[in-house]
């Protein structure tokens, strides 16, 4: 198995290997290989289209967790300019599972807050695999309140396997930290745009996920409990995670139907990791468009709309 490809992508991987082999041959033979390569490329694209046109909920969970999936720190320099990271909750510490800071979006100052899983092993450990502790949510809250004071819109990038379930998390009040964010974000007097870029797991995701507009990348997921967790409770076995993923409706298409997600941002063919630049520019377009819309509204009206929307969940 090629680790750069997911299990259901292996036929694509095989084609790509062939293409690569031919390219090597191509350099020392003059037969008409480029035509052959072109054909195989076309075939690979068609195959990718076909496979990605028919993904199950569980397949999408895998794409969202793909080891090469772009994370917040991959997008931030591509979507924004002049990002200055700000650290610390001023109470306990600095949680690297949540990054935040001031930046510019199309020239306009904004506050960016994103969950970061970390790429290399050392980085993953530093960032606790994207599982924030209370200080992460409190740092986010501090930055959001600062954004309100300086009339900066808030943009959050959601990507977490969940808030950290550990002794220290509980000791420092992880529940209260998340709850407080939900409460304050419901009334923060500045536009809040949320984008689920990878994995939106439960309260840990929602803790930076209340706002005026919620978008998901096409192959991102958002759930109240991980499919494995759900399967464990209901079927007493994680083997049923695919069934759980299907039953819970963890994808943007289902969540948009439920009226919870407002927009889906299309991913490049084969997922965001195949073309980070393109994905970033689509996210940027999305944010600029939505921000423009929200900033034309009086703040009071925007807040009333946000509140009415929160009240409508499930109706």
């Amino acid at each position: 198995m090629n680790p750069n490809y997911l299990d259901f992508e292996q036929p694509i991987a095989e084609l790509e290997v062939k293409i690569e082999e031919l390219q090597h041959v191509g350099s020392d033979a003059d037969i008409n290989i480029s035509e052959e390569i072109e054909k195989l490329r076309e075939k690979s694209t068609k195959l990718t289209e076909k496979i990605y046109g028919n993904l199950s909920a569980w397949d999408i969970v895998k794409v969202a967790r793909h080891p090469q999936r772009p994370y917040s720190l991959d997008y931030i320099p591509r979507v924004f300019t002049e990002f200055d990271e700000l650290h610390g909750d001023r109470r306990f510490g600095d949680d690297r599972a949540i990054v935040g800071g001031v930046a510019r979006l199309d020239g306009q100052p904004v506050m960016v807050i994103g969950q970061e899983k970390g790429r290399a092993v050392k980085d993953k450990v530093l960032r606790n695999f994207g599982m924030p502790k209370p200080e992460g949510y409190r740092k986010a809250l501090r930055l959001m309140e600062m954004a309100e004071r300086f009339k900066m819109p808030v943009i959050t990038l959601i990507d977490t396997p969940g808030a950290y379930p550990g002794i220290d998390s509980e000791e420092r009040g992880i529940s209260e930290a998340i709850a407080q964010n939900l409460a304050v974000m419901s009334r923060l007097a500045t536009p809040i745009l949320c984008v689920v870029i990878g994995e939106g797991s439960s309260g840990g995701a929602l803790g930076i996920g209340v706002g005026d507009h919620l978008a998901m990348l096409q192959y991102a997921t958002y759930f109240v409990i991980s499919p494995e967790g759900c399967a464990n409770i209901i079927w007493k076995s994680t083997e049923h995670a695919p069934d759980a993923a299907q039953a819970m409706g963890v994808t943007s298409s289902v969540l948009q139907d439920l009226g919870i997600v407002d927009a889906t941002i299309a991913e490049p063919l084969g997922g965001a990791h195949r073309n980070v630049g393109l994905m970033a520019s689509r996210i940027q377009d999305h944010l600029i468009g939505q921000l423009d819309r929200l900033q034309q509204m009086p703040v009071e009206a925007m807040l009333e709309q946000r509140y009415a929307r929160l009240m409508s969940y499930g109706n």
């Binding site: 409460a183 009240m311 969940y313």
Partner: peptide, 17 residues
Amino acid sequence: MQEALISLMQMAKTSAV
């Protein structure tokens, strides 16, 4: 669990009120 994200959003709703 059985109400999936609708139940998650009740957290936001109750916190807002």
